[in-house]
Design a protein around this nucleic acid. Structure first.
Lengths: 246, 246
DNA sequence: CGCGGTATTGACCAGTCTCAATCACGGTGG
DNA sequence: CCACCGTGATTGAGACTGGTCAATACCGCG
């Protein structure tokens, strides 16, 4: 279970960025029980409307959260990377309003709601940290909605890359300017509300303008400044910087 | 302060739909301190990026939550009615990521974060209720994003009316098929991601098809069945029905 | 080596936006 | 009591972003 431990600690690091927790509380969080599960590429591992009893921590790979219209069209509303508790919200709202799909192959750690809620009940600071984390998620979603609604196609795609790059840059040795990106162009379209055809055209434009090169499941950001300018990107909404220190 | 008491009790009713709370806990919630404030029509009363120290309970009127792109364009991400704690999330994330604007004239009750967090710390069940409520808000936002992204103009507008009608129908004598709606067509466009011109054309179409009549700050739903069909509306995402009773 | 899924490109189409003119209505001052 | 004014509503004509349809190329894998 070394994998799970690493994932929990990644997650804890992120919680600590936003909420102060005592030694004891950290220990309790790192000791959360669960089971590791390997998810094959592009599989739904939480289905829409399902009654869920666990939260899913991403250990490796990526996962998309998405909603679905009655005609079956999907819209990805969040992309989760290793160290994200993808559906912490399900602990208080177990009927999945949005589903989860692996993007490429992924490894997850399923933590029972019971264990999560038990900690929340016994440690007010942990409850607050959970609440806050869900709130940040919601802020990210709100930005996502704004970008998808108000920006043209290229800006939307650029924004997604800028967001992911920034998140990869935090707290790890991963390179925010060159990261694995296992989404197909269709999936990228689901996230940016575009057709695969148009995604393709925009990726070409981004490459030709020397902004970013997306190829063979990998994003290479060529010019971070240009990317942020194109994307109208400002990372404050991600709340990845401690409010009261350096 | 009779007004404030009524608003708090409306809010409590909604909390109780989703979370069980003891007599004592209900009493504590109803006793939350705060100050009543009258907001003139179409005024921002929480500005973007501002450090907030209170949560705003809507006592009467309507308020819009919105995000803003750097070019100043707004996107309304939620519409709040009387009895909604519009920015409960600000209690754990005081830097306003989205602003609040009165839609028409409104009356609000500002509750200090300190009082909210104090209750959350002393009563785990209250903390959980708050967390759950923010999560429902997030689910609503997610549906909003899906609708705005994937549905054509008329469906989006219809969906908004269906959602509001449903929310008005709960727990009060207000009529969900005929309610005050003080938004201008520009503001309605901000919420549905359309221009005022196109909103106007779609409202006409809704009227001509006998679905809904929107005129002089009032929505009249002519045919609820048709409206839901047009809107592809399903109210489960609002979580307005108690999970375990009738 | 062939197959299935993915990527790429082109030609054309459609929903929504933009620009612009006109209308309706509530409030104000004379 | 009425002319005036400003905001919001309504309507038309034309432009543009992104979607649809369709053909072809690529690539990993059995």
């Amino acid at each position: 279970m070394i994998e799970a431990r690493t994932g929990l600690s990644l997650w804890l690091d992120r919680l600590l960025l936003r909420s102060p927790l005592s030694e004891e509380e950290c220990g309790q969080l790192l000791a959360l029980p669960g089971t590791v599960e390997r998810i094959r590429a592009n599989r739904d591992f939480v289905r829409l409307g399902e009654e869920v009893t666990t939260c899913c921590l991403i250990l490796s790979g990526m996962a998309g959260r998405f909603g679905q219209a009655r005609n079956g069209e999907r819209l990805t509303t969040a992309i989760h990377i290793a160290g994200d508790m993808a559906d912490l919200h399900s602990a208080v709202l177990p009927t999945a309003a949005s589903a989860l799909q692996s993007l490429g192959e992924a490894l997850i750690y399923r933590v029972p709601h019971a264990a999560i809620m038990d900690l929340a009940e016994r440690y007010p600071a942990i409850a607050q940290a959970f609440w806050r984390d869900c709130t940040v998620d919601s802020a990210v979603l709100s930005q996502w909605a704004l970008t998808n609604a108000r920006q043209p196609a290229m800006e939307r795609i650029a924004h997604l890359f800028a967001e992911l790059g920034t998140r990869f840059d935090i707290g790890e040795k991963r390179d925010g300017a060159n990261f694995e990106f296992p989404l197909t162009q269709v999936q990228l379209g689901d996230a940016t509300n575009l057709t695969a055809v148009h995604v393709n055209r925009m990726l070409r434009a981004l490459r030709e303008n020397g902004v970013a090169d997306v190829r063979s499941k990998r994003v290479r950001i060529l010019d971070w400044k240009k990317l942020c300018a194109v994307a109208d990107f400002d990372d404050t909404y991600l709340h990845l910087h401690r409010p009261h220190d350096g």
